[in-house]
Computed example of a mutant assay.
Amino acid sequence: MANSHHFLSRKLHSLLGLVPVGLFLLVHLTVNYQATKGAEAFNSGVGFMESLPFLIVLEFVFIYIPLLFHAIYGLYIAFQAKNNVGTFSYFRNQMFLWQRITGVITLIFLAWHVFQTRIQFALGNVELNYDMMANVLSNPGFMIFYIIGTLAAVFHFSNGIWAFLVHWGITVGPRSQRIATYVTMIIFVVVGFIGVRAITAFIQ
Rank of each mutant, 00 (worst) to 15 (best):
L26F: 05
S51Q: 07
V190T: 09
I170K: 09
K82H: 12
L52Q: 08
L18Q: 10
I186C: 08
Y130H: 13
L123W: 08
I147C: 07
A152H: 01
G141V: 05
S89M: 07
P20A: 01
A122G: 05
G86I: 05
I179N: 06
Y73C: 05
H156M: 02
H5I: 10
I101A: 08
T87F: 13
T36C: 05
T117R: 08
A201Y: 01
M185Q: 13
V190F: 06
V31H: 00
L26D: 05
P20N: 04
H5S: 13
H156D: 00
A35F: 01
W162C: 11
I194G: 01
M95P: 04
E40A: 11
V190R: 05
I101S: 11
V189E: 04
Q80I: 12
D131V: 08
V21E: 02
V114G: 07
L25Y: 00
L23Q: 05
V114R: 08
V46Y: 01
V104A: 07
G86Y: 06
N159C: 08
S138L: 13
H113Y: 08
T36P: 01
G74I: 00
A111M: 10
F62D: 11
L97V: 07
W162P: 03
Q116Y: 10
D131F: 14
A122P: 03
V27I: 14
K82D: 13
F96K: 15
L29C: 02
F62W: 11
W168T: 15
V85G: 12
L26C: 10
F24R: 09
I203G: 03
L75Q: 12
A2Q: 14
P20Y: 03
L165D: 03
L75T: 02
H13V: 03
I108A: 04
Q99C: 05
A201F: 01
Q116A: 15
V61A: 09
G173C: 14
F121E: 08
P53M: 05
V183E: 03
V57A: 08
P20C: 09
S9F: 15
G149N: 02
E127T: 13
G74P: 03
F42R: 05
V189H: 09
V196F: 02
S44D: 15
P174H: 02
E50K: 13
E50H: 09
F7S: 14
F79K: 10
V190S: 07
A35E: 02
V57D: 10
S4R: 14
V114L: 14
L123F: 06
F145A: 04
A78S: 15
Q99I: 10
N125L: 15
N32G: 10
